[in-house]
Design a binder for these strands. Structure first.
Lengths: 213, 213
DNA sequence: GTCTATAGTTGGATAGAC
DNA sequence: GTCTATCCAACTATAGAC
């Protein structure tokens, strides 16, 4: 069934090969970082040949860039859509602080099925700068500016430089969580979704209090 | 002058070679991570031969362990000394929250002259687990337990699991800052020391508010 | 204690057959 | 479009001279 028409010639479908490579790359780059991940490890996990990766993406760095593109563009679109909707509803009034934080954090935690792509976002802050600086600017620069501006609007009485600094603290919390460094103590009857929801609520509460302090 | 008696035979002093290696390793492991740093890069920066590193430390992983030992043991001693003094002064009363946070954070930011060793602590949370898990337990396990207990004592009305979680958020903020990911906007007449002091004060204020929320 | 030289792997990338 | 085979550079670690 489905649309799995194999090409008449040669091996697998090209799109399928690329998808498998990106899936494996996403997981491995997230878990082990760029320097800790070899092309061979990615291709082996994807079940394709080493040269397939170079054919489809050109280089290891280009594979990383493609991996970020696929994972983070939808995430950032979700963030900006939520923020835009908040701004529309608020009109000229101050933005509600916890809603702004929710718009920033929630898409990170509820997007895809598995957690691997979350760690990838964290690597923007720990992989060597010459590898990820451009990607960080591309995928986090605008987001950062938009949300800082929103937080300044949500906290009209606070000094702007202090809000900027506190936003970076919030990013630190987020990165730490998505890097898998936070152990939760789930209260016994707890599904994955309620656990995630609880963690998100705690992060927002922590961040909101810190921003208001 | 001084006690720089060169050994009668052979090249340089062994202790001096080790010091140079540890200095270079500290900086490079901090900046580029374990996988991103080659022994050759370390020995070249230290001005010694490749084999000197293996002779003195045995392997790349052992060099990393030695680097952590030299950098973090004094740091943790300072943290625990401050905490113990706080507990002594408080007697049976609740511990003052901001003082506990100060005891945890201040030694990280005022210890050595240069910033390289700070980043090393951050690598405990971003280098591949099979490399740093044991080091993280060794150099952060006890510290973490002691400070969580102190924070629980400082916040007797708060749920213990929530305090544990919030402590991990504080660690996230700290790691983000020591990893060099936070840009400060220093108000013009600002020396390094007042800038650091200001950053520390902001972190403590942010963390204290989040913990109390 | 330090060096040069080298062994033995593993890495990224490419050529050429199919 | 995919594969096998290969090149070449860089790596960790060690052997052996001094």
């Amino acid at each position: 069934m489905a649309t799995d028409l194999r090409p008449a010639l040669g091996g697998r479908d090209a799109a399928e090969t690329q998808r498998r490579l990106l899936d494996a790359a996403e997981r491995l780059f997230a878990e082990r970082g760029f320097m800790g991940t070899s092309i061979r490890a990615v291709t082996q996990a994807a079940g394709v040949s080493v040269s397939a990766a170079n054919y489809h993406f050109g280089s290891k760095e280009a594979l990383l860039a493609a991996t970020y593109g696929r994972a983070i563009i939808p995430l950032n679109e979700a963030r900006l859509a939520r923020l835009t909707e908040l701004e529309r509803r608020a009109g000229d009034a101050a933005l509600p602080l916890t809603d702004v934080l929710d718009a920033f954090l929630r898409p990170v935690f509820e997007s895809p099925d598995d957690a691997s792509f979350r760690g990838l976002a964290g690597r923007l802050f720990s992989d060597p700068p010459e590898i990820v600086a451009a990607l960080k600017q591309e995928y986090f620069g605008e987001i950062s500016e938009r949300f800082v501006a929103a937080l300044v609007r949500a906290l009209p009485d606070r000094d702007e430089d202090e809000v900027k600094l506190a936003f970076q603290f919030v990013v630190g919390v987020m990165v730490h969580v998505i890097a898998g460094q936070v152990e939760t103590n789930p209260t016994p009857p707890s599904s994955d979704v309620t656990e995630t929801e609880e963690l998100l609520a705690q992060m927002i509460r922590f961040a909101a209090a810190g921003l208001q302090a």
